[in-house]
Write a protein that binds this DNA or RNA. Sequence first.
DNA 1: CTGAAAGCGCTAACAA
DNA 2: TTGTTAGCGCTTTCAG
Lengths: 343, 343
Amino acid sequence: MNLKTLAQELGLSPTTVSRALNGYPEVSEATRIRVMKAAEAANYRPNTQAKRLATGRAMAIGHIIPISTRHEIVNPVFADFIAGAGEVYARRGYDMVITIVPDDQEARAYAELRSKGNVDGVLVHAPKVEDHRIAMLDHLGLPFVLHGRVSGIESSYSWVDVNNVRAFTRATNFLLDLGHRRIALINGIGNMDFARRRRRGYEQALTARGIAPDPALITEGEMTEAQGHDAAREMLQLSNPPTAFLTASLLSAMGARRGIEEAGLKMGRDISIVTHDDELGYLKNGTAEEPIFTATRSSVREAGRRCAALLIDQIESGDRTPRHELMEAVLVLGQSTGPAPTA
Amino acid sequence: MNLKTLAQELGLSPTTVSRALNGYPEVSEATRIRVMKAAEAANYRPNTQAKRLATGRAMAIGHIIPISTRHEIVNPVFADFIAGAGEVYARRGYDMVITIVPDDQEARAYAELRSKGNVDGVLVHAPKVEDHRIAMLDHLGLPFVLHGRVSGIESSYSWVDVNNVRAFTRATNFLLDLGHRRIALINGIGNMDFARRRRRGYEQALTARGIAPDPALITEGEMTEAQGHDAAREMLQLSNPPTAFLTASLLSAMGARRGIEEAGLKMGRDISIVTHDDELGYLKNGTAEEPIFTATRSSVREAGRRCAALLIDQIESGDRTPRHELMEAVLVLGQSTGPAPTA
DNA sequence: CTGAAAGCGCTAACAA
DNA sequence: TTGTTAGCGCTTTCAG
């Protein structure tokens, strides 16, 4: 069933039917209703491709996922972001087009998406310090929104990010308030922008209390269980070992926990862990002496929603002045994951 | 840059240029080369929407992800599948369109995808026992491939699946060979087809050795850390507790490990764990007395590739006779994750 | 081997 | 308020 035949059945022109269906004002209420009913009855749906060609709008948003670095796709957090963004796309009639590319071909992927007219805009994931993609997208003229920020870049662009500095300042302060003075940081890959900011928050909190950050207590890398385990084992063998760990992910925290137990120490008695990730409800129901965490997964989903909404707004309004949203992480202590963080 | 202007610049008709670019035989090698060069120089890419409209092919594959049940999107394994499928799509020129829907609207989502002509086929995830989606897609006439199978359905369809029965039979036998007689199963949600099959494999192995499966040693549910922990705690309080755990996911295994330690038992001395999931390299480097696991994540990625390739083949060939691929899980013991499982 | 012309299904000026 | 006409950018007969 297409427009033309539907129009014929109704004894109307395709134009009128189109207008009625798309809510144009200049069509009489009577015919509109008649058309709507007929369309409903015939189970008519406008052909997407034709619509796209005619309007010049792809009604789709692209997400490019580079894969040679495993972090992005393996990170469970990515799925949450997609879920959040997908909710918004569904609501607003957009398709989500995901492209997997070896990361040395990422630039070409954006350019192709652009020149083939596949998408109206893109969402950019996992920005690195001084990420080159910003300049490239600017140059392409393809609307985009970053999930995260890029520290080393002066040009302005739209982004949605969580306040990583503040989250880690608070988490560090929490441990300091408990009396800890030797606090280790198990962080993400150093050139990821979020990791840089988290480290800054941690160091600022220490410095503010007159404690010099100790490089021996900081490790950066892929946020896996093994990372947490190895780091904990190693650090606990120092002559002046940490009494607490602050980790950037739940997996690292689990690993650290294992390392701690292998060293014969007991969680909450000898040592504490704070993690940034609420991922799977692990580490919940603790007391103040036990692990706490800040909410990541729920906020990533919310970030997905906001990125998507922001991008669609920009596309539909044509207004390209950069906009930002900074979300606060929620510190979760001794209870299950709370609602998504507030702005 | 579009076909028309490119043709003008070359002093050729759009037809000829199109033919040259699309590899039609009836164009002279000389002009083909000339056209190719010009296209390259002008950085010309055919407009996707126009191509789609003209050919009637969407050059896109849909993935519908229902979200009210959290399992799918939260499961890290899903990201691996997407990565694998995405590789193939990229190679063969297809877009991957992901739709997130509240799971009570899944049927409508497929119907819309179909009638709007958004995609040429769909990949179906996480089949349940007696999954109704098969009948629906059959009825819609939309080509599809299942990742997994549906036990309770007689109609035939294409699928790619891992041999869950055999994986769990082998894992159970491994524990039996070590001398265990009280083996617990921490399984996925009961109405998921894969969970049903895993259970069957486990029970078959026990029965074959004359051991009656004990319902008190079987638990089914969302495969979280908490599930593993709670199940382990509970089962270890039985008057006749298990000496080994077989879990369907790494997270459950981690949880079980925590539960075991809380109970004052020691891994590898008092108790063993085998898990189906190689997720993050956890539990590796064990001895025979220590945990082993079968490769899931790497095989899921491979499954993604195969599903995508199978679907595209069917779409392009027009041949709708159902095809299947059964992959064997690889038992990984005392070493890091191996290569993807072989067929 | 190349080109002219029609058409994919829709939207959007412009007329009436 | 409705219809006519052109056109989005490509592919694909059908002629030459």
